[in-house]
């Protein structure tokens, strides 16, 4: 394995881990809202969250370019603070987080749905505010679902390609494993592509194995 391969593998794993941390708070909030609240627009929200799952990843990438490009509504604001997103490591994290979020939300939501509401109700009668009920009852009891969701989101982030190449390109400074496999193959560097493949497969295998263990509790 060359230094380059190691660098790419490390970058991919660390950015995917960062993306997982970024998607956890909104992911947990969305999962809880979808599992526990009835409100107008709920079906809409549910669909919106799942959209990156069915949309071609490049299409999601294009939407992100619109939003976070220099002239985009969010990109313009961030540039005002001197934060550039497009074609930097931030764009990689953004693409990974958006693509991983639906999987995180699904597993986490299932985790919350399995929590018997009875415990939440009784905690409230014992004087616990809704925030305390969430932190001391709902979240700990949904722990398995949250962990499984985080690992699924992380695995998805590791393999992200379509949205990433749209927003971050295949620059040496932003290249992830998936993007590297593509560019190595394109440029006929087959041995390098094979090495990346092996690295990618072993990381993904490990993550999925862990995820299944959390989900089934074995």
């Amino acid at each position: 394995m060359t230094g380059d391969t190691l660098g790419i593998a490390w970058r991919t794993v660390s950015l995917a881990a960062l993306a997982t941390l970024v998607m956890l708070p909104p992911g947990i909030a969305l999962a809880w809202v979808l599992a526990r609240r009835r409100f107008p627009g709920r079906a809409m929200l549910e669909t919106l969250v799942s959209l990156p799952l069915v949309l071609p990843p490049v299409a999601t990438g294009l939407i992100l370019i619109w939003l976070f490009g220099r002239r985009g509504p969010l990109g313009g604001v961030l540039e005002g603070f001197g934060i550039e997103v497009m074609f930097t490591w931030r764009a990689v994290v953004l693409a990974m987080a958006v693509m991983g979020l639906p999987l995180l939300v699904r597993a986490t939501r299932a985790g919350f749905e399995q929590v018997d509401r009875r415990y939440e109700e009784i905690a409230a009668t014992l004087g616990a505010s809704p925030v305390r009920v969430f932190l001391t009852i709902s979240l700990p009891l949904a722990k398995r679902g949250v962990l499984a969701g985080a690992l699924l989101g992380f695995s998805r982030a590791l393999g992200e390609f379509g949205a990433t190449i749209m927003v971050a390109g295949a620059l040496p400074s932003t290249r992830t494993i998936a993007v590297a496999i593509y560019s190595y193959t394109e440029t006929g560097q087959e041995a390098a592509a094979m090495t990346m493949l092996a690295v990618s497969a072993s990381i993904a295998f490990g993550a999925l194995l862990l995820s299944n263990r959390f989900a089934t509790g074995s």
Partner: peptide, 20 residues
């Protein structure tokens, strides 16, 4: 008054002891 401000102790039939 919301449940958490009622200060009423409730022992339901299923007890609902927190399993964790």
């Amino acid at each position: 008054v919301p449940p958490h401000e009622r200060n009423v102790g409730y022992v339901p039939q299923d007890l609902a002891l927190f399993p964790h």
